[in-house]
């Protein structure tokens, strides 16, 4: 049974003037325990929104449809009521933007201990000890728990945020760009840590990032999102060596490689507006392989290998 499965998830945001923005337009994902899925895609394509929906942490201006299955049971059906018992204890999240999760007037340790205390797992002295352990786990000295967030560098706050997410030993970890604020060395350490945790504890992890090399090195699987939908999912190997969707291929081509000599090719144009319905393939205006049906017909879901899926009219790869 999948540790986490998402079926036909949609999220809409109310915009001023009664309009709506369809940020997530029906995505499907499935993760086995110990699997690491990289969720990549252009800025604003709905990655954060999708995982906030999985956590039930969307604001009042959002409405949601679809299913989020945790070990087989739908936790989304009852809204916040069915989400709350699982949040932080079974499914936890590292927020995008390190500082975002921290309250500037409370010490970092105090805030890491909060989910522990809420879940009734530890309190007082025990919570302090556990907090110190968690901080050490992410490479910060436990003594620093009495410091305030502004006394930490950006990278340290991000690591503290990871410590907070791991506090209640969740089974599913959603990490939203957990290393964007970090230098490559700490990034390497954190990824090593996350890989170790998923391997040893059977933690299933969704890693949101825009950094494809990172996904290649740290994840077993990847899902490429475009304009609120999944363009392609498969193993990282399949996506790198045999992409089925032109967007996947173009993303790799646009990625600068420190050692490579190939010139990067940026993807011209901009993603479509999400507050208006799209006709045909949403990637069509920017696609270098677009042909006949692309402008008018929504691409069907196609699969070559088991688990390697795409939404594209092209047959035989990008």
């Amino acid at each position: 049974m999948s540790a986490l499965a998402v079926e036909d998830l949609h999220v809409w945001f109310d915009l001023p003037g009664g309009r709506e923005l369809h940020a997530v337009q029906g995505i499907d994902l499935a993760l086995e325990p110990g699997e690491r899925l990289g969720l990549v895609g252009e800025s604003g394509c709905g990655k954060t929104t999708a995982i906030l929906a999985m956590m039930g942490l969307l604001p009042p201006s959002a409405s949601v449809a679809g299913r989020v299955l945790l070990a087989g049971g739908d936790i989304l059906a009852g809204g916040d009521r069915t989400m709350r018992p699982h949040r932080w204890t079974d499914i936890a999240m590292v927020f995008q933007g390190a500082m975002n999760a921290f309250d500037p007037v409370r010490t970092v340790g105090d805030q890491i201990a909060e989910p522990l205390e809420r879940a009734g797992l530890a309190a007082g002295r025990a919570a302090r000890t556990r907090t110190a352990e968690l901080l050490e786990l992410v490479g910060i000295s436990g003594e620093r728990q009495d410091r305030y967030p502004h006394e930490f560098s950006g990278g340290m706050r991000q690591r503290a945020a990871i410590a907070m997410a791991l506090a209640c030993e969740p089974k599913v970890l959603l990490a939203d760009e957990p290393t964007t604020a970090l230098d490559v060395m700490v990034q390497a350490q954190i990824l090593e840590l996350l890989v170790r945790l998923t391997d040893e504890l059977g933690l299933a992890m969704v890693l949101v990032t825009h950094d494809l090399p990172l996904v290649s090195q740290a994840c077993t699987h990847a899902a490429v999102m475009y304009a609120g939908r999944i363009a392609e999912t498969g193993t990282t190997r399949e996506l790198h060596h045999a992409p089925l969707h032109p967007y996947t291929r173009m993303l790799f081509e646009a990625t600068p490689d420190l050692r490579g000599t190939d010139a990067v090719r940026s993807i011209p144009g901009a993603p479509p507006r999400l507050d208006e319905p799209t006709v045909g393939c949403p990637f069509q205006p920017r696609c270098d392989r677009a042909f006949g049906p692309c402008a008018t017909t929504r691409p069907p879901r196609r699969t070559t290998e088991p688990g390697h899926l795409t939404h594209c009219h092209l047959e035989g790869g990008a």
């Binding site: 990549v40 800025s43 933007g97 964007t180 825009h210 993303l251 646009a254 990625t255 990067v264």
Partner: peptide, 9 residues
């Protein structure tokens, strides 16, 4: 840091 490759470019 938070931009994908194409916007970043």
């Amino acid at each position: 840091s938070m931009l994908d490759v194409s916007v970043r470019a």
